Computed example of a mutant assay.
Amino acid sequence: MPKRPARRATADQPTRPCPCGSTEPYGGCCGRLHRRETTAATAEQLMRSRFSAFSVGDADYLSRTWHSTTRPARLTLDPRQQWTRLDVLGTEQGGLFDTTGTVEFRAHYRESGQVNTVYERSRFVREDGQWVYLDADESH
């Protein structure tokens, strides 16, 4: 069995600002979702919590919130990537009463001294009543 990477500092310091960009501390924001104390109410909240999971190195949460038909068999996070900022650019549907939603965002990270950005339109659906990541919308 592969060795799990250690969680990064924010997960061990719940009073630090949440990586998702909210004004809440990590422990009261995305940390609650990572610890299974609650689930995401909207597609955007799930997307923000998934960004935070990348930031703190929580591969288990990422797997748990990935749709069963598109989830990779194994997920290994690159510890050299430091996810630094999330910019949510827009959402379509994904609310409390929706079953599908799309979140457009830019995620910023550092790797080997280089600053990089990922742009994506992520698609989310409800599976067993919970929001999960489906895939990236390639049509845009």
Rank of each mutant, 00 (worst) to 15 (best):
Y119F: 15
L33W: 01
L96Q: 15
L77F: 06
E138R: 12
L86N: 03
P14C: 09
Y61R: 03
D128E: 14
G57T: 01
R36L: 15
P79D: 12
G28M: 14
R106A: 06
E44G: 01
R126F: 09
A53Y: 03
V132W: 02
W66R: 02
Y119Q: 14
S22D: 06
T84D: 11
R35N: 13
M47W: 01
R50S: 09
P19F: 00
D98L: 05
C18R: 01
R85H: 13
Q45Y: 07
R126L: 10
Y109C: 09
R50E: 10
R35W: 10
L33T: 03
R80N: 11
T70K: 07
A9P: 06
P2Q: 13
L96A: 15
S55P: 03
L86T: 05
F124L: 15
D98C: 08
L33Y: 05
S22V: 03
S22T: 09
L96H: 15
C20V: 08
C30H: 01
Q93C: 09
D135T: 13
T100A: 15
P79Y: 05
V132M: 10
G21L: 13
D78K: 12
S112N: 12
G28I: 10
S122K: 01
P79Q: 10
E127S: 06
T10W: 02
E120R: 03
T91I: 11
E138V: 10
A11W: 05
T84S: 14
R121N: 09
E138K: 11
L62G: 00
S68H: 07
Q130W: 09
R121F: 04
S68D: 04
R80I: 04
L86S: 04
F124R: 08
T42S: 14
R85K: 14
W131K: 01
G31I: 01
A9W: 09
W66Y: 09
Y61P: 01
T65Q: 07
E120P: 02
T76S: 14
E138G: 06
W83H: 04
R126E: 08
V103L: 02
W66D: 02
D58R: 01
G95A: 11
T42M: 12
R64Y: 01
L46R: 01
R74A: 14
E127A: 04
E92N: 08
R50H: 11
S122Y: 01
P2K: 14
F54P: 00
R35Q: 15
D58L: 03
L86A: 07
A107K: 00
D135E: 15
R32F: 06
T70Q: 07
S68L: 03
W83A: 02
T38K: 14
T117L: 11
H140M: 10
D78G: 11
D12N: 15
D60C: 02
V132T: 14
F54H: 08
E138A: 10
M47G: 02
E111R: 12
E44F: 00
H108C: 07
E127T: 06
R74Q: 15
G94L: 04
W131H: 00
G129K: 03
A9K: 13
T91Q: 09
Q81T: 11
R36F: 13
S52I: 10
P79K: 08
D12T: 12
R7T: 11
R8D: 08
Y61M: 05
